[in-house]
Design a protein around this nucleic acid. Structure first.
Length: 600
RNA sequence: GGGGUGGUAGUUAAGUUGGUUAUAACGCCGGCCUGUCACGCCGGAGGCCGCGGGUUCAAGUCCCGUCCACCCCGCCA
């Protein structure tokens, strides 16, 4: 060993250019590839900054060349050498391609077993292996780029919010369990038998109390915990940019967030996003797209046929006639253009997709040259009047295929929203270079729960209702809209928030509509209700999903590519094997007994 | 909890209507090679075909169950 570690590196593997010719340098890194010519040995040395070609030439240094023969991929080494121009033999693929380093010394810091997969981008490796050897996966340049970008975004967020007067203050993770919302992870307490903390699913109530405290503007880049099943864009622990401000209007909050997001996009990607962002009413989003996070980068919108079918008194289609008898039901259609040229088999596959989401099937009708319906059981009985009315309402043209869903509104929306997305991707309709930011605003304050036959808070119980709708709160709660908003980007919900209720009288009405008694409210949210009595300022805020933001920013198609140590869909960490069993003694200390369900 | 897709060498994949010794590429090991840059050439090793049952003369292939991963529904105020 020539003690290179003590001397320290002089440059990173992305630094050296023709201007450095003749310099004696020390580089540290990993062997990215080795090309042994028996005489010269070439090594591409990699660190997180880039790569540099190192040449071991026996005529330059016999000893180093001898050692270099033992090098293998992913050995961690240090080299000392002299920078030489490559003259006409440059490597345009490398930033350091003008030069190479002729090694005069080599230290092997650590050997490496052959890695289970190649440390290269664009290598398709199975997800399980990647997660098991996460530290090797993270060594790949693309993932390193993602986390460098994530770091940069976090710094921009801090700087931007700081410059707008927001204070970064931390809130507890170990909190009181409050009902409603996501399932919580629970933490048993050693000192208090039978009592538990919950891991915070968000700092929601604490940030509101900051406003009562007079901090005026707060933010935090904060971890949140929710015990729910995973998705492409959902992890059990995830990071929010949490924001709350006093004396807001909805527009003021939007301005802050738009400023923040456009700054991030500009500084991270060099992309100029137009402000203000587009806005859409929640109801309109549901009607046109079937969900509250529409990807508006393509058309293929839904047509709601419920009223039309009612007007035609079922139009000779018994299934439709039955559907519209129930006011909670819906009939929707979308048009697959003739150009898609969907085969019978492909349409059958779509039907299977629908069934997988709980739908009974997928009614279809193809338009012939005259606009008549073919290849459809609906065609046999439908009245000519309703058929042409549907053709007109949907804009369907000869050769187009109509797809229908009918039944319970929530199911129809879900199925049709996913069907639209599926077709959009499959048919290549999505304009994938576009950044489609969209505010979805004014959803209903309450949602009717079909199972329990009660009204529930659609967001949380502390969202401010639209003043003009307050008159309906007792008679028709479903009509009451509220100051809640989601920011949607390319079909992903990247932020959600609301203007809060700070008026105890209106708060009482909301609780009443939710069927929550004063005692119950006191027991569950007492500390917040109490706080609101001490001159709580009008306040409101928002939380941005920092992981999702990064997923879109880096153009990756999974949250796992921007979370350093992600968990599987079922919440397992394949690298550490968490969660794991603990000893009987530990359980006893926590006053907890494990009940393992018997396997059939 | 439900639907779908996948699981074959270290990795990525191929494997026909069930039929001899399960292929290939990369990686790995050995040898050769002084200008490669995903070096090249020659040779070699490497397999519980996820796991368990079943059908069959015969199963990677067919059937049933089960586990794991991914995508979706439910769930995510």
């Amino acid at each position: 060993m020539s003690n290179l570690l003590e001397r320290g590196r002089s440059h990173t593997c992305n630094d050296l250019t023709g201007a450095d010719e003749g310099k004696k340098v020390v580089l540290f890194g990993w062997v990215d590839s080795r090309r042994d010519h028996g005489g010269c040995v070439f090594v591409d040395l990699r660190d997180r900054f880039g790569k540099t070609q190192v040449v071991f030439d026996p005529q330059v240094e016999q000893k180093a060349h001898g050692l270099a023969g033992d090098l293998r991929n992913e050995y961690c080494i240090g080299i000392e050498g002299v920078v030489k121009s490559r003259g006409g033999n440059k490597n345009p693929k490398l930033h350091t391609g003008e030069i190479e380093v002729h090694a005069t010394a080599l230290d092997i810091f650590n050997k490496s077993e052959p890695p289970p997969f190649l440390i290269q981008d664009d290598i398709d490796t199975n997800e399980e292996k990647r997660l098991e050897f996460r530290y090797l996966d993270l060594r790949r340049p693309q993932l390193q780029k993602n986390f460098i970008m994530r770091h940069k975004a976090a710094q921009i967020v801090r700087r931007h919010l700081d410059s707008h007067g927001f204070l970064e203050i931390e809130t507890p993770f170990l909190v009181k369990y409050t009902p409603g919302g996501a399932r919580n992870f629970l933490v048993p307490h050693r000192v208090y038998p039978g009592k538990f903390y919950a891991l915070a699913e968000s700092p929601q109530l604490f940030k509101q109390l900051f406003m009562v405290a007079g901090f005026d503007r707060y933010f935090q880049i904060v971890r949140c915990f929710r015990d729910e099943d995973g998705r492409l864009d959902r992890q059990p622990e995830f990071t929010q940019i949490d924001i709350e401000m006093s004396f807001p209007t909805q527009d003021r909050i939007f301005e802050i967030v738009e400023g923040l997001v456009t700054t991030v996009w500009k500084e991270c990607l060099g992309v100029e996003i137009k402000k203000p962002f587009a806005r859409m009413e929640f109801d309109e989003s549901m009607r046109r797209f079937g969900n509250d996070k529409p990807d508006v980068r393509f058309g293929m919108e839904h047509t709601d046929l419920t009223e039309l079918v009612k007007q035609h008194d079922g139009g000779g289609v018994p299934l439709f006639a039955d559907t519209v008898k129930n006011p909670a039901n819906l009939i929707k259609a979308l048009v697959v253009p003739a150009s898609a040229n969907l085969s019978r088999t492909e349409a059958d596959k779509l039907e299977e997709l629908c069934k997988g989401m709980g739908s009974k099937g997928l009614a279809r009708a193809k338009l012939d040259e005259a606009g008549n319906w073919t290849q459809s059981p609906l065609a046999k009985t439908i009245s000519e009047g309703m058929r042409s009315a549907i053709n007109q309402a949907t804009g369907a043209k000869p050769g187009d295929l109509l797809l229908f869903q009918f039944g319970r509104a929530s199911l129809v929306h879900t199925v049709m929203a996913n069907l639209r997305l599926h077709l959009g991707k499959k048919l290549g309709l999505i304009r994938d270079k576009e950044w489609a930011f969209l505010w979805v605003v004014n959803p209903p304050l309450f949602e009717y729960d079909e199972d329990t036959k009660t009204w529930a808070a659609a967001h949380h119980a502390f969202t401010k209702p639209v003043d003009a709708d307050l008159q309906h709160i007792e008679t028709d709660p479903g009509k009451v809209k509220c100051f809640r908003y989601d920011l949607v980007l390319n079909g992903f919900e990247i932020a959600g928030g609301s203007v809060r209720l700070h008026d105890p009288i209106v708060q009482g009405k909301v609780f009443k509509a939710l069927g929550i008694s004063a005692e119950e409210a006191q027991q569950k949210f007492g500390f917040l209700l109490q706080a609101l009595k001490y001159g709580a300022p009008p306040h409101g805020g928002i939380a941005l999903g920092f992981d999702r933001l990064n997923m879109l920013l880096t153009g990756t198609d999974s949250l796992r590519d921007v979370v350093a140590y992600p968990k599987t869909q079922k919440g397992v960490d394949l690298m550490t094997d968490a969660p794991n069993e603990v000893s009987a003694k530990q359980l006893e200390e926590l006053h907890v007994r494990a009940i393992i369900p018997a396997k059939a």
